[in-house]
């Protein structure tokens, strides 16, 4: 079709073909957008992921609870003196994902560890109070986390994630 023209002398026909082709491409791209965007979370799901408040008073020292936020299990541990001690004294250089305990809890609230209870290996739920490090043990592939939720042993590459949260008072936190 385009043999009649050359690159130096674009004809009106060439321009028309290019313009039509470009318009078709733009139209196709604009059509694909909603077809893909519909897969993202809908408005109701996003609204349901709003922050939640958790009352800490019922959790005794050494106990932990599991709450759900955005479909994810959140472990809230009331750590014992021993657990805090262990978490603070470990040498950072010996950790696969070095992070001091102070970076994983809120200042002045050392006894509260809040972590997302999803193993950073492949997403299983670690069991609290199990394993060799007074923390969490993932039954799927044997990852072990310490009392600060840091990876110590096993295939997981990173520490348990700390969700965004804040203390509203000494006994109440807001997650999210």
């Amino acid at each position: 079709m385009t043999t009649a023209s050359s690159a130096d002398h674009p004809t009106r026909r060439d321009f028309l073909f290019v313009a039509t082709g470009a318009a078709a491409a733009v139209g196709a791209a604009a059509t694909v957008w909603p077809l893909v965007a519909q897969m993202n979370p809908d408005a109701a799901t996003i609204a349901a992921g709003a922050p939640i408040e958790v009352d800490l008073t019922p959790i005794a020292e050494g106990q932990d609870i599991k709450v759900f936020w955005r479909g994810k299990p959140i472990y809230i541990s009331h750590r014992t003196k021993k657990q805090i001690q262990e978490a603070q004294s470990v040498a950072l250089s010996s950790l696969p994902d070095p992070q001091p305990d102070s970076a994983r809890v809120k200042a002045g609230h050392d006894q509260w560890l809040v972590v997302i209870g999803i193993c950073t290996h492949l997403g299983c739920i670690p069991i609290a109070h199990e394993g060799n490090y007074d923390g969490f043990f993932c039954p799927c592939h044997g990852s072990q986390y310490d009392s600060s939720g840091r990876i110590r042993q096993g295939p997981a590459p990173a520490n348990l994630a700390v969700p965004p949260y804040a203390f509203l008072s000494d006994t109440k936190i807001q997650i999210g």
Binding site: Q38, D42, A43, A44, T45
Partner: peptide, 27 residues
């Protein structure tokens, strides 16, 4: 992907498609 084929939920799921799903009304 968004519809629920259940007598108690179908009507509502269609409404939720139209109201909440991104471009659900368009689709």
């Amino acid at each position: 992907m968004h519809y629920t084929p259940h007598a108690d939920l179908a009507f509502k799921s269609v409404e939720l498609i139209v109201r909440d799903v991104n471009y659900g009304w368009l689709l």
